[in-house]
Design a protein around this nucleic acid. Structure first.
Length: 671
RNA sequence: GCCACUGUGGCUUAGCUGGUAGAGCAUCUGAUUCGUAAUCAGAAGGUCGGGAGUUCGAAUCUCCCCAGUGGCUCCA
């Protein structure tokens, strides 16, 4: 007999050889809703046999662990279905991921439209309710089982110690190399949806075979699946690319170029407000504003190390006209031109891929003393990077963007305090905008690598400063070894967009490299020259990416202070036009952004039209308002307030804007 | 950059197997003056992403570019 401890602490006695499934059924009844079990904290299949005293806990299908197992099993089901439909295909790997699962196959590319048939096959296989069986095999047997699949053999070669066996999971005729655990049978996998197909490289290596990756979703119940699909639909509606168009915030024009954002008037308002907001805080924190040009000589970037080494991620250099003509006359080819630039034999200009070199030159333009430090130079600096065409997306990944950049030149002793100051700034911004769903990544050096510049002892100190700063935030943060830049540790702020992609926004990076390369110094109190340390920081990251994320964060319903049109005035008839002008003037007098529609269109129509642009308030003016010098308001959700005296309205609205209230609040929800 | 898919007036979109484009919204002009999610009528607007080819004839077929979407790779 063995003793089995259940989660509630009770200890039951069973005959050795009992399975997890039997224990859980005994403890929780037949409808236990569990897919697998944890034995002494480790996950096992329901069919796992218990031989000694242990604790057993069921893993329910609606728990995080349960969903993970469900997804993994669904990936297997997908592979089984694909094998039946595409006999030549080879399965490679198929894990559970955050939002579902995928499986990679070595096969001819298929189209999205083929997914329907695969999904149908999966459901059919699920319905046939195969038992999912774990089989332990010796290495020899494993190799025999996967003799036709070089991918699996490669996994066996890599993952298994010589002579070790492993397990396969079987369902029907089909089996896969896998450690499990899995659901007990395929009937648990009825509620699936294949979402997309795309290529992927074997083991993520661009130089290796391209595989077909199929993505899918799975949920434990029909309702859960429906809800997930519904949520995805809703999320799509807040996609900044769609809202950006609907709300007329920005435009990307084929003829201007890929990944180049044109900020339209309404979008420019948001950007300007954000810049003003951040500038305000920068002044308070002792930053100095600078302006620098969009280009710089190649020599500058040779010195910084960005040219020619990061050439492929930059726009090609600009060459002076006379030189270009001379080279052309001499019959110089593009390849030769490129080589001459690389070797430094000819000079050219580059669109700046970052602002640091320019700021460094400002630092170096005077002799500095420890009394001047920290020197904090800030600029909304536009930079250009040649991102791969397939990577460009909306406002979040672009080729020209404006960083809310600053470079801090500090002494070694000031690093900790200044990093903290940078972090605080990020937090002020995120708090004010109600952005709570972000994670913080502290990038540390890889202890096994020697690619890092600078003294290890100083690194230790800087890393500790970053760690301490991140810890002070009170939000989840994680250290990631090997994520540091070669020139110093960093702290990144990462948020997810509506489709679950992660974007790095704010960043704070310590840099030992550039001060060295540019031979920056300051005079210390000891009368000696010392090397300053640089801190690069951008709380928003870039205005483009940040606004893109912000559009999705607010679903286009910006707080009043950021809303492009704070008030949209609508008249009931043409005879109210004069009063509308009066109200508009009064609002503008108080620096409130107003638009007026005094045309003779029907009010219903006007409301419908301007609703799409999401003004903070629609101000409705008719006979009543005109006679009493009042306004009536309509909020975004349709709530109304009538006959608010104009001066009171202005006062309240001004207050709402000045306080940067998270959402319009002048119209109380109707009961 | 790689693979799949997509690309019709400002926006949304019809156009099956090839016979030189239909609509709604928006715009403009009239009429209407009507209190909170589409008032009526009329007009104007597209060589169908660009180029080449096949064909008597192409938005529809082929090829090459460009751009977008999804993903991979990349992101100093």
């Amino acid at each position: 007999m063995i003793h089995v401890t259940l989660p509630d602490g009770t200890v039951n006695e069973y005959a050795a050889g009992i399975t997890c499934a039997e224990v859980i059924t005994d403890a929780m009844g037949k409808k236990h809703g569990c897919l697998a079990a944890k034995v002494n904290g480790t996950e096992y299949d329901m069919s796992h046999v218990l031989d000694e005293n242990c604790s057993v806990e069921g893993i329910r299908s609606d728990s995080d662990e349960g969903i993970h197992i469900l997804r993994h099993s669904a990936a297997h089901l997908l592979a089984q279905a694909v094998m039946e439909l595409y006999p030549g295909a080879l399965p490679t790997i198929g894990p559970a991921i955050d939002r579902g699962f995928y499986y990679d196959f070595a096969m001819e590319p298929i189209a999205e439209s083929d997914l329907k048939a695969i999904e149908k096959k999966m459901k059919e296989l699920a319905r046939r309710n195969f038992t999912v069986e774990r089989v332990e095999l010796s290495e020899e047997d494993l190799r025999e089982h996967f003799i036709d699949n070089p991918y699996k053999i490669e996994i066996i070669d890599d993952k298994l110690e010589d002579g070790d066996g492993s397990t396969i999971y079987k369902q029907g005729e089909w089996y896969d190399l896998c450690l499990g655990p899995h659901v007990p049978n395929t009937s648990r996998l009825m509620f699936i949806k294949l979402t997309s197909v795309s290529p992927a490289y074997w083991r993520g290596d661009q130089d290796r075979e391209q595989l077909v990756r199929i993505y899918g979703l799975v949920e434990p119940t029909k309702d859960a699946l429906r809800e997930t699909l519904h949520r995805m639909e809703e999320a799509k509606k807040r996609d900044h690319r769609k809202l950006g168009k609907d709300l007329q915030l920005f435009h990307i024009d084929e003829e201007v170029g890929q990944g180049l954002i044109l900020w339209t008037p309404r979008g420019a308002v948001i950007r300007q407000e954000l810049q003003d907001f951040i500038s305000h805080h920068l002044r308070r924190q002792g930053y100095k504003q600078v302006f620098t040009p969009h280009i710089g000589k190649l020599d500058l970037y040779r010195k910084s190390g960005h040219f020619p080494y990061y050439q492929e991620s930059q726009y090609p250099p600009l060459v002076e006209r006379d030189l270009m003509k001379k080279l052309a006359d001499e019959g110089c080819t593009c390849g030769e031109l490129s080589n001459l630039m690389k070797t430094g034999e000819i000079e050219g200009y580059m669109l700046k891929p970052m602002n640091c070199p320019h700021h460094i030159k400002i630092y170096a333009s005077q002799s500095r003393s420890y009394r001047n430090l920290p020197l904090r130079l800030a600029e909304f600096g536009t930079v250009y990077r040649w991102e791969q065409s397939g990577e460009i997306s909306g406002m979040t990944r672009v080729r020209g963007f404006t960083q809310d950049d600053a470079h801090l030149f500090v002494t070694e002793d000031q690093i900790a305090e200044e990093v903290l100051g940078c972090i605080e700034l990020v937090q002020i911004i995120f708090d004010k905008l109600g952005m709570t769903d972000y994670r913080v990544r502290v990038g540390l050096r890889d202890p096994d690598s020697d690619k890092y510049v600078g003294d290890p002892a100083r690194w230790d100190k800087a890393e500790e400063a970053c760690r301490a700063a991140a810890a002070s935030l009170g939000v989840p943060w994680a250290e990631e070894e090997g994520e540091a830049a070669f020139y110093g540790p960093k702290i990144d702020f990462v948020v997810k967009d509506v489709i679950g992609r992660e974007w790095q926004l704010g960043t704070v990076q310590v840099d030992y490299n550039l001060p060295e390369r540019f031979d920056l110094t300051y005079m210390g109190s000891d009368g000696e020259h010392h090397r300053p340390v640089m801190i690069h920081r951008a709380p928003f990251g870039s205005m483009e990416r940040f606004c893109g994320v912000l559009i999705e964060h607010f679903a286009g319903k910006f707080p009043t202070w950021l809303t492009p049109t704070q008030c949209h005035i609508i008249t009931l008839g043409e005879r109210h036009e004069a009063y509308a002008t009066k109200v508009a003037d009064a609002l503008r007098e108080h620096d409130i952004r107003v638009e007026v529609d005094a045309t003779d269109a029907h009010i219903k129509k006007k409301i419908k039209t301007y609703r799409k642009l999401q003004p903070a308030y629609m101000v409705i003016l008719g006979d009543g308002e005109m006679e009493t010098n009042t306004v009536s308001l309509r909020a975004r959700n349709g709530d109304q307030v009538a006959d608010l005296p104009l001066d009171v309205f202005i006062q309240l609205l001004r207050h709402e804007i000045d306080e940067k209230t998270s959402q319009p609040s002048l119209v109380a929800p109707t009961e």
